[in-house]
Simulated assay, not measured.
Amino acid sequence: MTTETITADAAGTWTLGDLTVNRIGFGAMRLTGSSAFHLGTPSDRKRSIAVLHKARELGVNHIDTAAFYFSSLRSANEIINSALSPYPDDLVIAAKVGPFRDYTGEWGTSARPEDLRGHVEENLRQLGRDHLDLVYLRRMRQDSIAEHFGALAELREAGLIRHLGISDVEPRHLAEAQAIAPVVCVQNRFGLDSHNPGTDDILRICGEQGIAFVPFYAIAGESGPHGAASGHDEEVLAVARAHGATPAQIRLAWTLAQGPHVLAIPGTGNPDHLTENIAAGAVRLTDEERDTLDSLHRKAG
């Protein structure tokens, strides 16, 4: 398929609270190198900045990031700040808090509720902003998220945060958070070969309630933070051939086809892969193709 003229609005839009975004956005994790979860070889900074410029040229107006996205010499937030500040009015930047790493890159224990203000302020400092459009509370195996989410709700009331989301949660956590403050989106791991009945329930509930569902690792498969899936089922390859598309584009198209409330945030440090990811928003699967891939997803469980 021809990709150069396809922009992020091809997949349609969704409204996060009062902020309208294109359904294909950009995940910033890979701007720092092969993975934000180790301090390996740093990325080429000029190339990472070029990827962000290209994303904006292609209509991306939703970027997902975090202060803990860093590798040796590189910080995703700093790169975003350098590339895109002063920020366009239509750009929505989402950050996550909960996990944290020290300066050596080692992971700490999960943040306490009283730590979250400092985490939000660190994102603000790195991004050069006076408020964050959207902040996710990433659950770190807590049974209850009430105290942590309540701390973020207070920061929302103070004007440091515009909208709130939650990540890595079960349906009961969504209900728990909604009793405290509005939730505009949920971010869980979800993809064609990542089948979790609880996440499928969250996907459905979000659709019923008009809440955005934002899957991570949608095209990574079992590789997770280490990169896009390299092995593909024959069913995926067959659909890709039918559309003149790549398997990764079919994975993204299937993800977006799960409902108009589903957003995609594929990440890459490669300008060519970025263009392909954005173009996936123009792929329209047939009912038969959807059924085939849905069956593949169910088998993954």
Rank of each mutant, 00 (worst) to 15 (best):
S43W: 08
S43Y: 05
S43V: 08
D44Q: 10
R45Q: 05
R45F: 15
R45P: 15
K46N: 02
K46V: 11
K46A: 05
R47D: 13
S48N: 01
S48K: 14
S48C: 09
I49E: 02
I49P: 00
I49L: 04
A50M: 05
A50Y: 12
A50L: 10
A50Q: 12
A50H: 12
A50W: 01
V51K: 04
V51S: 04
V51Q: 11
L52Q: 02
L52M: 14
H53A: 07
K54W: 04
K54D: 06
K54T: 12
A55G: 12
A55P: 03
A55Q: 09
R56S: 00
R56L: 10
R56Q: 15
R56T: 00
E57Q: 12
E57P: 04
L58M: 10
G59Q: 01
G59K: 03
G59V: 00
G59E: 01
V60L: 12
V60I: 06
V60K: 12
V60P: 10
N61K: 00
N61D: 04
N61T: 14
H62L: 11
H62W: 08
I63V: 11
I63T: 07
D64M: 04
D64L: 08
D64S: 07
D64A: 07
D64P: 02
D64H: 01
T65G: 08
T65W: 02
T65P: 09
T65Y: 15
A66Y: 03
A66S: 06
A66N: 02
A67L: 01
A67Y: 00
A67K: 08
A67F: 01
A67N: 15
F68R: 10
F68P: 06
Y69T: 06
Y69M: 11
F70V: 13
F70S: 02
F70M: 12
S71L: 10
S71R: 15
S71Y: 09
S71C: 02
S72A: 11
S72M: 14
S72F: 13
S72N: 11
L73W: 11
L73C: 15
R74S: 13
R74N: 05
S75Y: 13
S75R: 06
S75I: 14
S75K: 11
A76S: 14
A76W: 00
A76I: 00
N77K: 11
N77H: 15
E78V: 05
E78L: 03
E78H: 06
E78G: 11
E78Q: 09
E78K: 12
I79E: 02
I80P: 01
I80H: 03
I80N: 00
I80S: 01
I80Y: 09
N81P: 00
S82F: 07
A83V: 04
S85K: 07
P86S: 03
P86W: 06
P86N: 13
P86L: 10
P86Q: 13
Y87A: 14
Y87H: 15
Y87S: 01
Y87R: 09
P88R: 08
P88Q: 07
P88F: 09
D89W: 10
D89E: 12
D90K: 10
D90E: 13
L91A: 08
V92M: 04
I93A: 04
I93N: 00
I93V: 14
I93E: 05
